[in-house]
Nucleic acid binder design. Structure first.
Length: 430
DNA sequence: TCTGGGGTCCTAGGACCC
DNA sequence: TCTGGGGTCCTAGGACCC
């Protein structure tokens, strides 16, 4: 049976979020910056029109920003996360099956409603999300997830389609012409490297890729590429994942606000990161069997000595205890640390994740067991206090208590937490 | 002199996504 | 001076076993 899948996403998501509570920003050139105000991670249409690419370092475009009065915002993930759940809730009302694919994208499966007019439905979706949440979305429809993604791209490019494109309503000849006009790089799963390799074979447009032999491409690339080609040809190979599968790893890392040199400072930052990673782990009722740490110097500074070590350490027994996990991270750090490098980033990783309740106690382990009731109560308290009073209020050891914290990130221009903090509620004046 | 072969598990690294 | 963070999947290659 022919599937009918829609991919709905929010246009310039972070920028659109900032505009919800600042309507005066409508029509003005805006960017949202990554942590540490490092790179551009979202651009308004006005900024895209100026040719600013995704990921451009902010310091490299300050001149342009002055010239064109571009406004920059530090990213406000609390706000984006909250608006994201609202958008997803509204979208979920339209189709029986929904996969929340990312913070701003959702697949909807309409296969079970074969007679529904999806172009009209797409327009209704756009209106309702705009009215109820305040952000603009685009809708792409096709018979596979890959085609729906492509249709979504098309919906944004063709102003006359008003934000909705259903490939299955187009005559075959129109689709051929359309796909021939789109670069293969736009296909979901084809990145920069793959696009270059494909070009060597003369495959440049989406039409070229669709016409390729999936078997042949599998030999030169991988099963992923084979699936992509089949999906372009209309054969559905990637299913909707309605329930998010449990995470296989948890990462917490940050670039530092200023470079650090000492093991003590690295240790302090890693303790803070592990606090957050362990909290995430407990939220999904998981335990970790292995802990990883990595360090980075600045790869862009060619004059600097480079050192990018990483290592992992298995735990004697799987655990969700911040103290146990932190201790392991400190062991790894001590093993990795070398004097004399200008470190700019570090991170921790929780690996070999398992479910907490199926965890077996280990007979002769001297480490606190993951099911020790006292530790469990302590960790639950830690999570509650931090949820109520803000991240990092309570930590293990000296996680972030010493001043000054050179490694702490810089955020120059963050907007208030309009929707999640009473003190930041927008005030309406009559 | 002549030095197997196949399977499995693990890890590192690459490529991709948002 | 200033260059994000958090994920997934796949492959190649080494270690190890019989």
């Amino acid at each position: 049976m022919q599937r009918r899948i829609a991919l709905v996403d929010v246009n310039n998501f972070y920028v659109s979020c900032e505009r919800v509570f600042r309507p005066d920003l409508e029509g003005k050139p805006i960017v949202v910056l990554s942590n540490n105000d490092g790179c551009v991670v979202a651009r308004s249409a006005e900024v895209k029109a100026l040719g600013v690419p995704m990921g451009l370092p902010w310091f490299q475009m300050k001149e342009l920003a002055r010239e064109h009065r571009i406004l920059a915002f530090s990213s406000n993930y609390t706000l984006y996360g909250d608006l994201s759940s609202r958008v997803m809730a509204v979208l979920g009302q339209f189709a029986p099956d929904q996969e929340v694919y990312s913070i701003d994208e959702s697949f909807l499966d309409f296969t079970r409603q074969p007679h529904l007019d999806l172009t009209a439905t797409g327009q209704t979706i756009r209106q309702r999300v705009k009215q109820w949440v305040g952000v603009p979305v685009s809708v792409g429809i096709g018979s596979t997830k890959t085609l729906a993604k492509l249709a979504n791209h098309v919906a944004k490019k063709r102003a006359d389609w008003n934000g909705v494109c259903d490939l299955d309503t187009l005559p075959g000849s129109d689709i051929d012409a359309l796909l021939a006009s789109i670069e293969v790089r736009e296909v979901w799963g084809v990145g920069r490297k793959t696009a270059m390799k494909l070009a060597e074979q003369g495959i440049r447009s989406v039409a070229d890729l669709r016409a390729a032999n999936p078997h042949r491409l599998r030999e030169r690339y991988s099963v992923v590429m084979e699936r992509t080609v089949r999906e372009l040809q209309g054969e559905s190979c990637i299913d909707l994942e309605e329930d998010a599968p449990p995470r296989q790893q948890i990462i917490a890392s940050r670039s530092f606000g200023a470079p650090v040199w000492t093991e003590a400072e690295l240790a302090e930052s890693l303790r803070a990161y592990m606090g957050r990673a362990a909290e995430k782990l407990r939220r999904q009722h998981g335990v970790a069997g292995r802990v990883g740490v990595w360090l980075e110097t600045n790869r862009h500074r060619l004059q600097d000595a480079q050192y990018h070590p990483s290592a992992t350490l298995p735990l004697p027994a799987p655990s969700d205890d911040t103290a146990v996990l932190t201790k392991a991270a400190m062991t790894v750090l001590h093993h990795l640390y070398r004097d004399g490098y200008r470190y700019v980033k570090a991170g921790v990783m929780l690996l070999e994740l398992g479910e907490r309740n199926v965890e077996q106690g280990q007979l002769f382990a001297d480490a606190p067991s993951a099911t020790d009731p006292l530790r469990t109560a302590l960790m639950a308290t830690l999570d509650r206090v931090n949820a109520r009073w803000g991240k990092g209020t309570l930590g293990i050891g000296s996680a972030g208590l010493r001043q000054p914290r050179r490694w702490a990130m810089k955020r120059g221009t963050m907007t208030p937490a309009y929707t999640t903090n009473w003190d930041d509620l927008a005030i309406v004046r009559a």
